[in-house]
Simulated assay, not measured.
Amino acid sequence: MSTTDTLERPAEQATAAPAAAEPLLRIQHLSKQFGSGAHPVRAVQDVSFDIYPGETLGLVGESGSGKSTIGRLLTRLIEPTAGQLQFRKQGGETVDLAHLGASAMRPLRADIQIIFQDPYASLNPRMRIRDVLGEALSTHGMATGAARQQRIAELLDQVGLRPEHAERFPHEFSGGQRQRIGIARALAVQPRFIVADEPLSALDVSIQAQVVNLLGDLKDRLGLTLLFISHDLDVVEYLCDRVVVLYLGRVVEVAPTEALYARPRHPYTQALLAAAPIPDPAQRRSIPLLSGDLPSPKNPPSGCVFRTRCPQAEARCAQADMQLRPVAEGHLQACWKVQD
């Protein structure tokens, strides 16, 4: 059974690029290298895209493509090697998160939160849930005393838990409940932007849909802005307004969700969608599945980094760059062979 078999689909789903005049977060030429010497690990290389207020932007790609690294860069859990992270603060002032020191970054931590992949590993096993949620409120000076207890109860209610759950420890909850606690912790300080880093991958399929529906409901009720990192293309199609496709640390396609799924332009995106499970196993696929392994980020191919696995590769691909080019309104891709 697919995760989306039990999803509560909305009557309408946004598909066009947001109409907001200014992005909440503008990522420009972002790069991250680990190690030094002749062959550092190029985890993220020259990545650029925008995230608009109120949208959910999907970030997809194979394991090792750099998705979680980007999520940690945007939340400044790790430092970028190069690039800019232009964040629009309350009131309209723009700051570059990539170049802020620790003291200057601290006031912005409340605006930018993360939901981690493993809910159990991200919770202190020795802290009761009231302390897990209360710690964030105390750190940012948002509530004390009775107001703090009321806020904790509100947060638990928002994610479908009961007030008495505040007295329990993390090991007393199921995986799905722990992820709800992780979501509540991210919401505690009323952030303007949340990175959801593969929040379903550690959960049983039977409860993944519950968490997806919760995120969708919170997005609509609270006007959240989300970067949703996932392997599950069905969930991305359901939840996200636009999608960024990543391959070996590079962006190869950006498009509104409906346009991307109806007509993917880049050969890698086509192969990803073709590899997704289909209801009828006998149904023929018109696009070849991916073959071979992801190249090493220590020694990426020259030219187009996808060329070593691309069924359409030509000699020119070894020299051609991977600059994103528009092919339709709001739709960019990085294959030189796609002209329209």
Rank of each mutant, 00 (worst) to 15 (best):
L222K: 08
A275T: 06
Q312M: 14
F34Y: 15
S2Y: 13
S302W: 05
L7I: 15
A328H: 01
I194M: 03
D234W: 00
L25W: 04
P80Y: 11
P279V: 08
E79W: 10
Q339A: 09
S36N: 12
Q312R: 15
Q149N: 13
V41A: 03
V252Y: 11
L324V: 03
N299G: 01
F87M: 03
R284F: 05
L289N: 06
G175A: 13
R128T: 06
A82P: 04
R285I: 09
G35F: 10
P53V: 09
G145M: 08
D131F: 01
A147D: 15
A153L: 00
Q45M: 01
A320G: 04
N124R: 10
Q45F: 00
R151T: 03
P297K: 12
T139I: 15
P163N: 10
A188W: 11
P199G: 12
F116I: 08
P18M: 01
G303T: 09
G216E: 00
Q86R: 14
G91A: 03
V244R: 08
I194F: 04
I129Y: 02
R242H: 09
S31H: 10
D96C: 14
L233V: 01
P267L: 14
A202L: 13
E167M: 10
E135N: 13
R128K: 15
V236P: 00
A38I: 02
G66S: 07
A282G: 13
R242A: 12
V236H: 03
V189F: 05
P53Y: 07
P326K: 11
Y247G: 11
E329H: 00
R263G: 02
C335N: 11
A275N: 06
I287C: 06
M127S: 09
I207N: 04
G216I: 05
V159E: 05
L156R: 12
Q86Y: 02
T6R: 13
Q45V: 05
P10S: 04
E79F: 09
H231E: 11
I129Q: 01
L57K: 02
I181S: 02
E198R: 14
Q117F: 11
W336Y: 14
G249H: 13
N213K: 06
S174D: 05
K298G: 06
T94P: 03
P80V: 13
A16V: 00
R242W: 00
C240A: 15
A153S: 12
I129N: 03
F306T: 03
D241T: 09
A315Y: 05
I112K: 04
D280H: 13
T225Y: 06
D293W: 01
G292T: 08
I129F: 04
R109Q: 14
E314L: 14
L226R: 00
R148T: 00
E237C: 06
S48L: 04
I207Q: 02
M105A: 08
K337D: 04
Q339M: 09
T139N: 11
E154H: 12
G292W: 07
Q113E: 12
F34M: 06
